[in-house]
Amino acid sequence: MRKFISIIGYAIGIVILAIIHIGVIYLLPEPYVKLNIIFVFIVLILLIREKGTVVWISFFLHLFLELYATTPFGIILFSGTLSTLLTYWFYQSVFTNKSWFAAMAISIVAISSYRIFYITLLVLTQFVFNITKVVFTPLLLTSLWELLFTTLLVGLIYLVLSKKLRKFDTKVIYS
């Protein structure tokens, strides 16, 4: 029963996040609009829950985005899910300490790997199927803005949360 309620909770959360991403983020002025709110939440969920469930949350979130995307179906889903898996591994074995800069480093890994997968798949579809035409300069510029604002927001939220949540408090030693 508890697991069922938890799944329902996750489902509602995913839908709300998709709505925020599609219907609200555009309110921000340029270039702040390039912020990737989905990855802000994915990184924060990873830091709070510390479980592999985050990969499946990412899968369903990117599936929602894929329904409205202009790129061939699969590019966002594949890059989003795989980059979250990669970030989860990094969190388990490299950035294991609890600090705002570790949170920002995880965010950098998440966004960078997402865009690397995304651009690679986009270029592949351009060569193999000739569906899309990749224009690199704006793509890279937007990716950098996305990386900057997403990382800054993750760091900021982490700082705020570390004051509120005992889990993020580095002074507390768990035995």
Binding site: I22, G23, L35, N36, Y68, T71, P138
Partner: peptide, 14 residues
């Protein structure tokens, strides 16, 4: 219009 910019890289309207 019911939404905008699913992907930060794109400029789109739904």
């Amino acid at each position: 219009i019911i939404g905008k910019n699913v992907d930060p890289i794109a400029n789109t309207l739904i």
